[in-house]
Design a protein around this nucleic acid. Structure first.
Length: 298
DNA sequence: CGATTTTGACCGGCGC
DNA sequence: GCGCCGGTCAAAATCG
């Protein structure tokens, strides 16, 4: 992904928090000061508009790339489905459902138990052969010791381990939103920045997000969808590469493109609206525009 | 009292 | 074959 194309809308830290109050000019202030102020506001307003335009363009480019990527992934799925599974012996009970559909969103009259069998079977094969793995960074309070990431889905924790490469414990979650959904995620604090939670998602949800509100109102601040890039450092307002990095996208269930787009838009919007610099600049720009209109009407 | 979390035990892969 | 390590299981503890 082209980093440079993204960097343009990353930095919203322009000092655009102009003194709006300054516009409440006292009556005895000179006209030239007013004109200067107006010019400045207009210039900044223009700059903001350009930033917004650029951001929209970048978003469109990203969306296009995502679409292409998803399409490519789907093609790969069809190819990979012919490849033989690797080792790892299956449990005995798997034989009972060996004729079941593996891969693909198997639809059917299968019972919940069958779903679980399939789920486990699929899961095992996916971990070896094909798996969609994405990594997401979340900003949290450094003092927050919980490994909870509010991403809109419901998760059930089934384990916690301290790994060798990172002293902070890694928590293991399974999707609890739907019984037949076997998406897993691992959450661990970043080695480099303890205030950043690294969530690694495996698999794809085969159901809609139960609560999209939660994903925006969560305690954790979303930083990026990204691959192996380092988590954003320093300013918490940084927005890293908004790309879902996947190792091999060949898991059976197809990605729901509208959902992904929606999620992407929500996450971008959430990141922007939570950025104090951006909101301040936006407020200043809107106020400036209103003020400008008032002046022209007079 | 059911649902959820915690945590030690267990399992399988992998490198030596 | 052995030990290490990551991942999962499941009984116990905790919570609402």
């Amino acid at each position: 992904m082209d980093q440079s194309s993204l960097s343009s809308f990353v930095d919203t830290s322009l000092d655009l928090t102009i003194g709006v109050t300054r516009m409440r000019v006292e009556e005895d202030s000179t006209t030239s000061a007013l004109v200067d102020e107006l010019n400045r506001v207009s210039a900044e307003n223009k700059k903001l508009s350009e930033m917004l335009t650029l951001m929209c363009e970048n978003y469109n480019v990203l969306r296009k790339q995502l679409m292409e990527y998803v399409n490519k992934s789907n093609n790969m799925t069809e190819i990979d489905q012919t490849s033989p599974p690797k080792k790892r012996k299956s449990p005995a009970r798997d034989d009972a459902v060996s004729s079941a559909v593996i891969g693909g969103v198997s639809e059917s009259s299968s019972t919940d138990q069958d779903d679980l069998f399939l789920c486990k079977k699929k899961q095992r094969e996916e971990t070896v052969v094909k798996e969609k793995v994405s990594r997401v960074y979340y900003k949290t309070e450094a003092s927050d010791t919980t490994l909870v990431v509010k991403d809109g889905y419901q998760w059930r924790k089934y384990g916690q381990k301290v790994t060798r490469d990172n002293p902070s414990p890694r928590a293991y979650f399974k999707c609890a939103s739907a019984p037949s959904c076997c998406v897993k995620k691992k959450v661990q604090r970043s080695l480099e920045d303890q205030s950043v939670l690294v969530a690694t998602y495996e698999g794809e949800h085969n159901h809609p997000m139960p609560s999209q509100i939660d994903s925006n109102n969560g305690l954790n601040r979303y930083i990026s969808l990204g691959g192996h890039t380092a988590p954003a450092k320093g300013s918490s307002s940084s927005l890293a590469e908004p790309v879902t990095e996947s190792k091999k996208v060949t898991s059976p269930s197809r990605m729901d493109i509208p959902d992904v787009q929606k999620l992407l838009v929500e996450q971008m919007a959430s990141s922007l609206t939570k950025d104090p610099n951006f909101t301040a600049a936006l407020a200043a720009a809107v106020t400036g525009r209103l003020y400008q209109q008032n002046q022209t009407e007079k």
